[in-house]
């Protein structure tokens, strides 16, 4: 099925819904006295999502996945400075456009149940200000939530129910772009798979899905492309088939090591630790842990196209 979609994409080059170019996020901090310094946590992050595809975003925690999602929706904290460009359907996503599309076309599925208002009944909350009651019922039925759930307050929900409620919030409108931030922890394997299958179904109907996930197996099974994030930037973006094929089909030492570290590949962990967000090295951010490091890695590592994917490594072939 993914072959078909890939060729359909090539036939229509302008199916890009979301395009993130050189995104940078830094946090203003007050250090010693009143001197304000900016800690960069995301740097030159690039990716795009097309209509009809699922782009899975993987990466260890702290790599900036949630910040990416929040930057797209414009809900970063007040002390965050953003650079770069985010385009939605070919237009720069300005404050005004964001306000127009949030909750109607662009839907966020947040990372944890404490994104629900503790004092508002679930049903009212899921419908929100733009949602549709009938679609809420449909979503609840699909995700096995009883109609009584609508009348509950969030504290009454079990962890798994809260997850399904969060997912339902993206289904009450007419989404063109879904940004899901780790939507499946706490769900049974069956429900998690069902959720991914549902995203697949929506993508097949033309929705663009940016799916941040730790569940690499499901990502391998249901996504079209995978973006590997490390220390706040995209290291490699490649067709999922390359990730499925194994490390030799991949381009970046980080994504190769990531695949090696999966349980089915023997759990070989990457030595060392991700550099601390406020203390990012010059040059390649992975160089400190990279088995193929050379002196040139201290220089700039721009992202470049390679074998139908994109990679940020000067040695990649």
């Amino acid at each position: 099925m993914s072959e078909e979609r890939a060729s359909a994409r090539q036939g229509e080059p302008d199916r890009t819904i979301l395009s993130v170019r050189n995104l940078g996020i830094s946090f203003g901090m007050y250090q010693k006295g009143l001197k304000r310094t900016f800690l960069p946590v995301i740097r030159s992050l690039c990716l795009d999502v097309r209509a009809g595809e699922i782009l899975a975003v993987i990466g260890s925690s702290g790599s900036g996945k949630s910040l990416l999602a929040h930057a797209i929706l414009g809900i970063l904290p007040g002390n965050a400075a953003v650079s770069g460009e985010i385009r939605y359907r070919g237009e720069t996503l300005t404050k005004r456009r964001r306000e127009r599309y949030r909750g109607t076309e662009i839907m966020l599925i947040p990372q944890s149940p404490d994104y629900l208002d503790p004092l508002m009944r679930v049903g009212k909350q899921v419908v929100g200000t733009h949602g549709d009651k009938a679609k809420l019922r449909e979503a609840f039925a699909r995700y096995g939530l009883a109609p009584e759930t609508e009348r509950m307050y969030p504290f009454k929900l079990s962890g798994g129910m809260a997850r399904r409620v969060l997912i339902s919030t993206a289904l009450v409108g007419d989404p063109k772009l879904i940004i899901a931030d780790e939507p499946t922890p706490g769900l049974s394997a069956e429900l998690a798979k069902g959720t991914f299958a549902h995203f697949r179904e929506m993508a097949d109907n033309g929705v663009a899905v940016l799916l941040i996930t730790h569940d690499v197996d499901l990502a391998l099974g249901f996504s079209d492309r995978i973006a590997a994030l490390y220390a706040g930037t995209t290291m490699e973006i490649a067709p999922t088939s390359d990730f499925r094929a194994g490390k030799n089909a991949l381009r970046h030492p980080y994504s190769k090591a990531f695949i090696d570290a999966l349980p089915q590949n023997g759990f070989r962990p990457i030595a060392g630790a991700q550099p601390y967000a406020g203390d990012l090295p010059e040059g390649c951010l992975f160089a400190g842990r990279c088995p193929e490091r050379t002196d040139e890695c201290a220089g700039a590592a721009p992202i470049r196209r390679l074998r139908g994917g994109e990679v940020r490594c000067i040695h990649a072939t």
Binding site: L73, G74, I75, E99, R102, G103, L108, D114, Y115, G128
Partner: peptide, 9 residues
Amino acid sequence: FILFARARG
């Protein structure tokens, strides 16, 4: 929860 409500328009 305020951020999320904002993200929902």
